[in-house]
Simulated scan of single mutants.
Amino acid sequence: MPDEHLPDERHEPPPSADASPPGDDLRDAVARQGSFWQTAKAVAWSFFGVRKSSDHAQDVERLNPLHVVIVGLLAGVLFVLGLLALVRWVVASGVSL
């Protein structure tokens, strides 16, 4: 016996008349012209894990998501390489013995 209080997942709401065609949102997002510094700063704050919701909302509006992904991947690679260099330096210096 179905519960009458649960929403029926089979019915989708009708599309609104002002809905944009599929893919337009992505084209609009990729066309954003955020600076490299703004993108790097947003990625650095996300690595640190602290961000004001107002700053996050501004980043979502002005940063190109493709740039955010590229800078995030580069930052991740640099982070891993930095950790590897630190471990090699500690092991080579004999401090770890």
Rank of each mutant, 00 (worst) to 15 (best):
E12I: 00
R62L: 12
E12W: 05
I70E: 04
A40R: 14
D8F: 04
P22K: 06
R32Q: 12
V68W: 02
V69F: 12
P22R: 06
L26Y: 10
W45H: 14
A44L: 12
S20E: 12
D25A: 15
Q33E: 15
G72I: 02
V71L: 04
D55W: 13
F79E: 11
L66I: 08
P65K: 05
R32C: 06
P7E: 03
D18Y: 09
L63C: 05
V68P: 01
V80I: 15
V80G: 01
D55R: 12
V68L: 02
W45K: 15
V43K: 10
P15H: 02
H11I: 15
F79A: 12
H67R: 04
P22A: 12
V60C: 10
V90T: 09
S96M: 05
N64T: 05
A29W: 05
P15Q: 02
D18I: 06
V43R: 09
D3Q: 02
V43L: 11
I70F: 05
L84H: 08
V80L: 15
D59Y: 12
R10E: 04
G34E: 10
A42E: 08
S53V: 14
L73T: 03
N64W: 03
A75N: 02
V30I: 15
L81P: 01
F79H: 13
V30M: 13
I70Q: 08
V95P: 02
R88I: 14
G49K: 03
P65M: 04
L63K: 07
I70H: 05
R32P: 08
V71A: 10
K52I: 00
E61V: 07
T39M: 04
L74S: 06
Q33C: 09
